[in-house]
């Protein structure tokens, strides 16, 4: 261990580096209170006066549709995807981890391959399929696959399997002696034990669907169904370039849910990422 004093230069360097890393985010935040001409050509972080009207202008920037509609849409979509992922992935994980069935090895191999499979390759046939089903311009192309474990499902299932493997098998055996069936065991004992892992999955599912710009772009056309991603992009294309302060205000608000989740659930990230070692 180093003494306090010898560690000081290191702390200064690490803090300075950290400051540079989050400087852009601070700049975005403080910029949301600045007038246009103060945002540019000016290095000072703090605004000279708090220009609150940016928030009003940003919130009502898209004619007739205020941003709470888009936030509502994003929440609805992300929650539906989150719940679907919990449903399909916890079932599949328990099946793989604790039940024997023919071809299990094959399906497990398939699962592992799909973790790495680049999904962008099949967006066109998927799109045509959803068009055929008449699901375009609705949330179904995103929600239904999630309920069937196709929203990063392979990753979530893998994460849960790893977690279940850490739960002693004797517990299952004791339950069988007690006469509890596997279904009851899963619902009453396994699910509560899985809570931390389910929480981790919920966080990832929520955050990734919140930012799933490409899917939103592909499947949603009507402005009243827009999630925040599309609304921001539309604002940028239309009027944003003349009022950056307003643009910054809604941009910042759009990442607030992510920041909140991050600060309150940090531990789960660190564990989720370092134990499974997958993306984040």
């Amino acid at each position: 261990m180093m003494t306090r004093w010898t560690a000081l230069p290191k702390h200064i360097a690490l803090s300075a580096f950290g400051f540079i890393m989050i400087y852009p985010v601070l700049w975005l935040f403080f910029g949301s209170f600045k007038k246009n001409d103060e945002i540019f050509g000016n290095a000072s972080l703090l605004p000279s006066t708090l220009h609150w009207s940016n928030y009003y202008d940003g919130w009502f920037a898209i004619n007739e549709l205020p941003f709470h509609i888009f936030f509502g849409n994003s929440f609805l979509l992300s929650i539906a995807i989150l719940l679907g992922s919990l449903f399909s992935c916890s079932l599949a994980a328990y099946g793989f981890a604790r039940i024997n069935f023919p071809l299990k090895g094959v399906w497990f191999a398939v699962l592992m391959v799909t973790i790495m499979f680049p999904k962008q390759i099949i967006i066109i046939p998927q799109f045509l399929m959803f068009a055929e089903l008449d699901w375009l311009n609705s949330y179904l192309p995103m929600i239904v696959p999630a309920w069937l474990g196709e929203f990063n499902g392979a990753f979530f299932i893998f994460l849960l399997i790893q977690f279940i493997r850490g739960i002693p098998l004797e517990l299952d055996e004791a339950a069988v002696v007690d006469g509890a069936g596997k279904v009851r065991f899963f619902l009453l004992i396994m699910l509560p034990l899985l809570k931390p892992a389910l929480f981790t999955i919920s966080i990832f599912a929520f955050m990734w669907s919140w930012d799933d710009f490409l899917s939103h772009l592909l499947y949603i056309n009507s402005v009243e169904l827009y999630p925040v991603t599309l609304a921001l992009n539309m604002f940028l294309d239309n009027t944003g370039k003349t009022n950056w302060g307003a643009m910054f205000s809604v941009s910042f608000l759009s990442i607030v849910p992510l920041l909140l989740i991050f600060f309150f659930a940090q531990k789960h990230f660190v564990e989720g990422i370092s134990t499974t070692g997958l993306k984040g």
Partner: peptide, 8 residues
């Protein structure tokens, strides 16, 4: 148990 995922 794996049916939803398998169907998906």
């Amino acid at each position: 148990f794996i049916l939803p995922w398998l169907a998906g």
